[in-house]
């Protein structure tokens, strides 16, 4: 194949490669293997070389740092592999059997799902409200975008430091403000019934700006004619929002909801940093459980099995989403 590619090196008059492949004069050239032209054209095989050549660098990383760990993780989940290197042997599906009977794993999976549900709703709704407000054409557009979007540029650790401080039961700004308006103090990160909501509030503050931007971009792409026509019909701002803006945003909303669900399922950073999964496991998400069984508990094989159960959940959600979106767009 590669010898065919070299045929291009022949000094030829400029011509489209596609045509040159059909050029009968080529077969007259010396040093050319006559059989090679039989199967595919030089253009075709050069395309193969070029195509895979262009793909090669990405593919190399892709294979080494994505495909390989993905497969190797699957293998690990069938072994008793440990952080210390002990127990390398294959143990079949024992890890999966253990995981399915592990109450802590189910609890952490439940926490992850709970967080996903109670975070996705405000993260989409507040973003929509923000975008709608800004889209009305308020003065000083940059100011609104800066305020709503800036937190998204922070690392999770910064957000956690900010909110751990504001949630401080005695010295925190939030409890102090609550006290000032006569409300009782809340043990934000120390009360098992409240801690997850505290995480949701911090997450809302942190990442809503991203959804806000996506909504804003989508709103500003709605052709002005739609609104002009409605205005002529005497439709007010509210009616325009519900009869034009919202319907036009439907594909965007679907995508934002889907992305948000997938992002929320991966929750780890804020929880690990603010509560470390506590109090008494009430906020521990499954990713933290993977981390803890694998690294704190040394049991890499077992935590690989939990990783794959979690992966299965994500795939299930993605497939579900795929069918929902397909039905919508159909």
């Amino acid at each position: 194949m590669s010898s065919l590619a070299t045929s291009e090196s022949a000094e030829q008059a400029p011509s489209l490669p596609g045509r040159s492949s059909r050029n009968p004069s080529q077969t007259n050239q010396p040093g050319k293997s006559p059989t090679s032209t039989a199967q595919s054209s030089p253009r075709r095989s050069r395309d193969n070389l070029n195509g895979w050549g262009f793909a090669a660098p990405f593919l190399a990383f892709f294979l080494v740092f994505l495909v390989w760990p993905l497969l190797y993780g699957l293998y690990m989940s069938l072994t008793g592999k440990s952080l210390t290197g002990a127990n390398d042997s294959l143990i079949g599906l024992a890890n999966y059997a253990e995981a399915l009977a592990d109450a802590d794993m189910w609890h952490s999976l439940g926490n992850t799902l709970y967080f996903t549900v109670i975070s996705t709703v405000p993260l989409v709704l507040v973003a929509l409200v923000m975008a709608a407000l800004v889209n009305v054409g308020l003065p000083a557009q940059w100011l609104w975008r800066l305020s709503y979007f800036a937190p998204y540029l922070l690392a999770s650790t910064v957000v956690s430091l900010f909110f751990s401080w504001m949630y401080n039961p005695q010295l925190g700004l939030i409890n102090d403000s609550l006290a000032k308006i006569g409300l009782p103090k809340v043990a934000w990160l120390n009360d098992p019934n409240v801690a997850m909501w505290a995480i949701v509030i911090a997450t809302l503050w942190w990442t809503v700006g991203f959804n806000f931007l996506l909504y804003l971009a989508a709103m500003q792409n709605i052709p002005a004619q739609h609104y002009e026509a409605a205005s002529l019909d005497g439709a007010g701002a509210w009616r325009q929002f519900f009869s034009i803006t919202l319907p036009q945003l439907t594909p965007t909303t679907v995508m934002i909801v889907l992305l948000q669900i997938l992002a929320s399922l991966k929750i780890f950073d804020q929880v690990y940093q603010m509560t470390a999964g506590g109090p008494s496991g009430s906020t521990r998400p499954v990713v933290e459980y993977i981390f803890e069984t694998g690294f704190t508990g040394y049991r890499l094989g077992y935590s690989a099995a939990i990783s794959y159960i979690f992966f299965g959940l994500i795939v299930a959600v993605s497939v579900m989403q795929f069918f929902i979106t397909r039905r919508r767009s159909a």
Binding site: F65, L66, P69, L70, F268, I290, G294, L300, S307, F311
Partner: peptide, 14 residues
């Protein structure tokens, strides 16, 4: 579709 957290264990080992 592959979420990075799923890979931390094998990637660490690698």
């Amino acid at each position: 579709m592959i979420p990075p957290p799923v890979l931390i264990i094998p990637l660490f080992y690698q």
